[in-house]
Design a protein around this nucleic acid. Structure first.
Length: 128
DNA sequence: ACCTTGACGGTTC
DNA sequence: GGAACCGCCAAGG
């Protein structure tokens, strides 16, 4: 019986990650958000690095039936965090440009494209 | 239980 | 701009 408990623990969804995935799903298309911004909105202030971790572990099929737009998350300097030239870098850049977001080099102008949710919007969509 | 790693952030120079 | 430095703290070894 102890065998069963051990086995199931390993496959539980990490609640921090789930919360982050859910928050990332709120970023509207055509907008971007910073790692730290997502951490704050997800109720995990100061844990930007955890957001990166969570994004790297998004399930193949998305979360709760919806895709997680990981590519809309960039760092606080407005830059894509992958090393320029890497596969992920190029992929993220393409996906952003597909949404009419202007990417120069590795930079997006936050003053033009950063998502700024208002209070009402958050209260309606967040369930925690 | 201890140590290292990070898709980060802010401060400073 | 950008590079160095430090704070942060969950995850994985």
């Amino acid at each position: 019986m102890s065998k069963i408990a051990k086995h199931s623990t390993k496959h539980l969804i990490n609640p921090y990650h789930a919360q982050i995935w859910q928050t990332v799903q709120l970023i509207p298309q055509g907008k971007v958000a910073c790692y730290g911004q997502i951490a704050d909105l997800a109720g995990l202030p100061g844990r930007a690095r955890l957001v990166g971790k969570a994004l790297s572990k998004i399930p193949e099929c998305g979360w709760q039936g919806k895709p997680v737009p990981w590519y809309r998350v960039i760092n606080s300097q407005g830059k894509i965090s992958f090393p320029s030239g890497s596969d992920y870098f190029e992929k993220q850049k393409c996906l952003l440009q597909d949404e009419q977001i202007v990417v120069i080099g590795s930079r997006v102008k936050l003053s033009n494209f950063q998502w700024k949710p208002d209070l009402a919007e958050l209260l309606l969509s967040l369930e925690f």
